[in-house]
């Protein structure tokens, strides 16, 4: 199982990494839908790790490692071409991406790199023990939050 999953994730990650090289392929509305799905997928894997961190589910190194690996794979793709011009809060009614995001792509790139680092550290921690997982959760949360704080419109 794990054997099969790794190449699949690597392929998915590579595809996402390759994406920024191509021209903007998504329509703004499609880009918004896709990035929101992507975020929810990260939330799903984080949910496995977080439920263990909270003590609501028994810690299992294998389950935690699989979730951490999937999360790290997804984190590779957050700076892909989901961030299409014309998909900010000013352009689309239910978009929550603030226009500031497009004004400082360098900073966005750094924040995306911080998320990759944090999720890679989580891969290490998730298989170690519960305390390590709980500690790594904090840095992943900081990385998510740093970008949301700067570039996501608060909920209505």
């Amino acid at each position: 199982m794990i054997h099969l999953r790794r190449p699949a994730i690597a392929a998915a990650a590579l595809a996402l990494l390759a994406a920024p090289l191509s021209a903007e392929v998504f329509e703004p509305k499609k880009a918004q839908e896709l990035r929101e799905s992507h975020m929810k997928l990260m939330g799903a894997h984080l949910g496995v790790l977080g439920t263990m961190a909270k003590g609501e589910m028994e810690y299992d190194a294998n389950v935690a490692s699989a979730a951490a690996e999937a999360l790290a794979g997804l984190a590779q793709g957050t700076n892909g071409n989901y961030w299409v011009e014309g998909s900010s809060t000013e352009d689309l009614e239910d978009s929550r991406a603030l226009p500031e995001l497009w004004q400082d792509m360098e900073d966005v790139g750094q924040k995306a790199a911080a998320l990759r680092d944090a999720t890679q550290a989580m891969q290490e921690a998730a298989g170690t023990d519960l305390a390590a997982l709980q500690g790594a959760m904090k840095s992943v949360g900081d990385a998510c939050g740093d970008c949301h704080k700067a570039y996501r419109k608060p909920e209505e």
Partner: peptide
């Protein structure tokens, strides 16, 4: 942690 119950984050 800043994580909501569905693992979104505080903004």
């Amino acid at each position: 942690s800043g994580f909501t119950p569905d693992f979104d984050t505080a903004g």
